[in-house]
Design a protein around this nucleic acid. Structure first.
Lengths: 223, 223
DNA sequence: GCAAAGCAAACATCAGACCATTAGACTGTT
DNA sequence: AACAGTCTAATGGTCTGATGTTTGCTTTGC
């Protein structure tokens, strides 16, 4: 194994073993490179890789720290990869979303607070068929993100968020606009909010399933 | 933004734009560093980061290539992070599995082939209450992996695989062994195989839900 | 034609220098 | 005492250039 990969493994092991905990600061690059027996440049490659997947947080002029390691931090690394897939595999992504989102929404229907419902409702303001695609994408991301968040499971949130990369959404909304299906999508959103508010778990699940499947169906035709 | 991060973004953009396709070879480090306007060392940090998340494949003495970019390659980067979480968040991971695996198994019940069923059955051979924990973990990983694979969705496979890091499984099986629950788990596996073979979608879904929930329930007590 | 040797290209690693930023100590003012 | 500004040491960011190692291809010799 290359020295850089060894360094990555060693740092990972230091975290798993508890030698380094969330929030801890690593020794300075010079010191750590000596301790691990490699040059500073090679160590830096390892640190950069761990930074990308959000395991380390490097603060210039200060030091390098272990992140909070919250599952939510998964998102960006995954999104990075999802962004690179924008063709056939989108349908596979939608299939996963169709499995997860209804379940997430059903859980949310049990747990959601009045305040969260109000926030959800606010995302519907100033949105109609004339709204720009950018605003629609923004609304859609926030809408689904809020529901997912209400399910109170950061892994779930992380996985769903990353399956919903905004580049992918933008493409879809652009298509929907052309198909004049914006109105239908928005009324589905409104129906979902009502079901959530009534705490109707099964109705929420069904509405979300229909909602996701609708977009999926359109997408399947479009491709 | 630091030059290294700029380089990461630029390489990513070259892939999204199609300038670099899956399997393509990047220019040599020296040349690329000049083109992107940074030093070779900094570029190497960027390349290393992209290698870790399986976007690039560096072959010493040969060159650097864009990987196949298949969703399955997601797994390792995600597993890396899941490995780091072995305490409270395990329950969140199980909740996501409980949402996804029954749906995945239901899809598998529609699509699975006789050959795949035979492979699945073979994983039950030589496994009983006296088997070592290592073998149980291996069996369990393969068992669930095969079902997921039969659902024919590489994103789904990737996400579920990474939520099932073997370190986590090992801990759970160790606990189950102590609780003498191995037998029950194995007979549940057998029942799932039968339901899959009969193509009984709803029964498969129910059995998998019960199966996952059972482990989840034990885990909730243990923590 | 084929196998071995040689070569050039490409990545791997290192050492050392200098720049840029930050946190914290220090200092002076109010 | 409280605050604001300044200074400084520590730390990461970047670059240069040299050397080692591996690989794929070409050349050579039979």
């Amino acid at each position: 194994m290359a020295v850089t990969d060894e360094a990555i493994t060693k740092i990972k092991d230091m975290i798993i073993s508890g030698e380094l905990a969330a929030g801890d600061r690593l020794p300075p690059e010079k010191e750590l490179s000596e301790k691990l027996g490699l040059s500073r440049s090679s160590l830096r490659e390892a640190v950069k890789a761990l930074e990308i997947i959000r395991v380390l947080d490097v603060r210039r002029g200060d030091g390098t720290y272990v992140t909070s390691l919250e599952p939510k931090l998964l998102t960006e690394a995954m999104t990075f990869i999802v962004d690179l897939h924008q063709d056939e595999t989108i349908l596979e992504i939608f299939e996963v979303r169709r499995m997860l989102e209804p379940a997430a929404a059903a859980t949310a229907a049990r747990l959601i607070t009045a305040e969260q419902i109000a926030t959800l409702r606010a995302t519907m303001d100033n949105i109609d068929e004339q709204t720009s695609v950018e605003s629609l994408v923004e609304h859609d991301l926030v809408f689904h993100g809020l529901i997912t968040a209400a399910a109170n499971n950061s892994y779930l949130e992380s996985v769903l968020d990353s399956l919903s990369s905004s580049t992918v959404r933008a493409r879809i909304w652009r298509g929907l606009t052309q198909e004049k299906a914006v109105d239908r999508t928005l009324s589905e959103h409104a129906a979902i909010i009502e079901a959530l508010e009534r705490g109707d778990i099964e109705l929420t699940r069904a509405l979300v399933t229909v909602h996701i499947s609708g977009v999926e169906h359109w997408l399947r035709q479009a491709l």
